[in-house]
Nucleic acid binder design. Structure first.
Length: 411
RNA sequence: GUGGCCGUAGCUCAGCUUGGUUAGAGCGCCUGGUUGUGGUCCAGGAGGUCGCGGGUUCAAAUCCCGUCGGCCACCCCA
C-alpha cells in the first residue's frame, strides 16, 4: 500500500491496459477524419458561467457536480464537466459558424460525484459537434458516428434509443400536461419524484421507481409541433436507410437543459451495471444564443470512453516485440547492444536485458515480454551468425546477422 | 449527498465469530535442477507499518471509535 494514491474517483492507466486506450484513441481519430470532422482543442477549464448557462443552472451537474474554484485573479473557474459548451463558446469566439462546422474532441472531463462502476470524477469523453445545420441528415450522421465508433471498439449488442423532446414551444405545452398528470398522481409517486414535480418534471419520466404510474403519463412525442414531428420522422427514415437499428424510447429525456428535438443514447444490452449508457447526444438549436452567439442550429454527441472499455471485448494484443536479444556470451554484450540499436533503426520492436543473466532467465523474459522471436548472441557471432528462434513454434535456425530482418519477414 | 459491503505479500484471497507462540495459500518475482534455450514440472528463496489514527486489554490482523480509500446501489449521467 503506497503512501500516496490517486485522488478519489481518479485512476492511473498502465501497460498493458494503456494499449487499449491508445488504440481507442486512434480508432476515434480515424473515424472523425473519415466523417470529415476537424479537431477542436479547448481549455480544460472555463469561466463558470459558460457551464452554468449552457448546461442549465438547475441541472444536477451545475447544482452539485462541478469542480469550481476561485483563481488568484478572483475569477470563478470550473473544470469542464462536458465539452459541448466549450466547443460552442470557442466557435462563437472565433466568429461563429459560416456555413457548416464539424468538430471533434477527445479529452478529460471532471464531475464531483460519488464514484461507482463506470462513474469517476475524472473521465474521458470523445465526441463530435455538427454545427450550422438544421437538416435531419446531420442528426442521422452524428447518430451513425457513435454507432460506428462502438462497432469498431467491439462493444457488442448496442441498442440505439432515440426520442424527440420537441422545440421549446412544444415543450412548454407538454410540461403543463405532464405537470397536471404528476400532480394528479402525486400521492403515489416516490419521494425523489415528488421533489422534482415542480423543479424538473421531465426528469420524473426517468424514475426507476415509478414505472407503473408513468405507464400512462403523457410523453413529449404526443406534443411535437408539425416541424419537429417531420424532423423526427426524417431522422428515423435516415437511420433505417443506413441500416442502423434503433428503438424509440418515448420516455427518454436527458440531463442537459440545452437539448431540443432529437435526443438519443447508446446502451450495450449485454452489460450489467447501473451506469448503462456509453454515449448519447442530441440537437441543441438554442445553445449558441444562450452563450451569446448568433442563432445556430446544431447537433452533437458525447461518448464515455471509460464505459466503452468496460463494455467492450478487449482483443488479444498479439506480439508486443519482434525480437528479444539473448546475450549468451557476456563478452559480446556491447555487440548485442549495437545490433539492437541497428535493428531498432530498421523499425523492429526489440528489447534485451541490461545486466548479466542466465540464458534461461533471458529466454523467460523473452517469453514474458511477448516477443515473436529470440536472437541469441554467442559463439556463432565469430562467424557473423546468430541463432534465431520462433517463440511460438519453437523452430530455430542459425543465420547470418544480415538475414535477421528477412527471416522475420518470411515467417 | 444517502445506504450496504469491503481494506492482510506485487495480484487474488484465507485467518477475524470464540483476542494469545516466528501472520498463511495460490499466482507472480528471483535462484537452482538443464555448464547456451522460454511457455510444463520439481526444489529453494526474497517479499507484509495486517489502509491510517486512537481506544479497550497483560496481549489486537482479530473487539470498539474515528478517518482515508475501494466496490456496489440510490441519485445523476458519458
Amino acid at each position: 500500500m503506497s503512501r500516496y494514491q490517486a485522488p478519489k474517483g481518479t485512476y492511473d492507466i498502465l501497460p498493458p491496459e494503456s494499449a487499449w486506450w491508445r488504440d481507442a484513441r486512434s480508432v476515434f481519430d480515424d473515424l472523425a477524419e473519415q466523417f470529415g470532422y476537424g479537431f477542436v482543442i479547448t481549455p480544460m477549464f472555463e469561466d463558470t458561467d459558460v457551464f452554468a448557462r449552457s448546461v442549465g443552472a438547475d441541472s444536477e451537474i451545475v447544482q452539485k457536480q462541478m469542480y469550481t474554484f476561485t483563481d488568484k485573479g478572483g475569477r470563478s473557474i470550473t473544470l469542464r464537466p462536458e465539452a459541448t459548451a466549450s466547443v460552442v463558446r470557442a466557435v462563437i469566439q472565433a466568429g461563429g459558424v459560416q456555413g457548416r462546422f464539424k468538430g471533434a474532441y477527445w479529452g478529460e472531463m471532471f464531475r464531483y460525484e460519488r464514484p461507482q462502476k463506470g462513474r469517476n470524477r475524472q473521465f474521458i469523453q470523445a465526441g463530435v459537434e455538427y454545427l450550422g445545420s438544421e437538416s435531419p441528415e446531420a442528426d442521422v450522421e452524428v447518430i451513425e458516428f457513435g454507432y460506428r465508433m462502438l462497432e469498431r471498439l467491439a462493444v457488442p449488442r448496442v441498442e440505439v434509443r432515440i426520442n424527440s423532446i420537441g422545440d421549446p414551444e412544444d415543450r412548454e405545452v407538454y410540461r403543463e400536461a405532464l405537470g397536471a398528470f404528476l400532480r394528479e398522481h402525486y400521492d403515489e409517486l416516490s419521494e425523489d419524484s415528488r421533489r422534482r414535480v415542480e423543479s424538473n418534471p421531465m426528469r420524473v419520466l426517468d424514475s426507476k421507481f415509478d414505472r407503473d404510474i408513468l405507464e400512462d403519463a403523457p410523453v413529449p412525442l404526443d406534443y411535437l409541433g408539425e416541424e419537429a414531428a417531420r424532423h423526427f420522422q426524417a431522422v428515423r427514415d435516415g437511420l433505417s436507410a443506413l441500416g442502423i437499428p434503433f428503438v424509440i424510447h418515448d420516455k427518454l429525456v436527458r440531463g442537459l437543459d440545452y437539448y431540443t428535438r432529437t435526443v438519443w443514447e447508446y446502451i450495450p444490452t449485454g452489460y450489467e451495471a447501473a451506469q448503462t449508457s456509453v454515449g448519447g447526444g442530441g440537437r441543441y438549436d438554442g445553445l449558441f444564443e444562450l452563450l451569446g452567439g448568433k442563432p445556430t442550429p446544431a447537433v452533437g454527441l458525447a461518448m464515455g470512453v471509460d464505459r466503452i472499455l468496460l463494455a467492450s471485448s478487449v482483443p488479444d494484443p498479439g506480439h508486443a516485440l519482434d525480437v528479444f536479444v539473448v546475450v549468451a556470451d557476456e563478452s559480446l554484450r556491447s555487440e548485442a547492444r549495437i545490433l539492437t540499436s541497428e535493428l531498432r533503426a530498421g523499425g523492429l520492436r526489440i528489447d534485451m536485458t541490461d545486466t548479466q543473466r542466465s540464458v534461461k532467465a533471458q529466454f523467460k523474459e523473452a517469453d514474458r515480454s511477448n516477443a515473436r522471436a529470440a536472437v541469441v548472441i554467442g559463439a556463432e557471432w565469430t562467424g557473423n551468425e546468430v541463432t534465431i528462434k520462433d517463440l511460438d513454434s519453437g523452430v530455430q535456425d542459425v543465420i547470418a546477422i544480415k538475414e535477421i530482418e528477412g527471416w522475420l519477414r518470411v515467417r
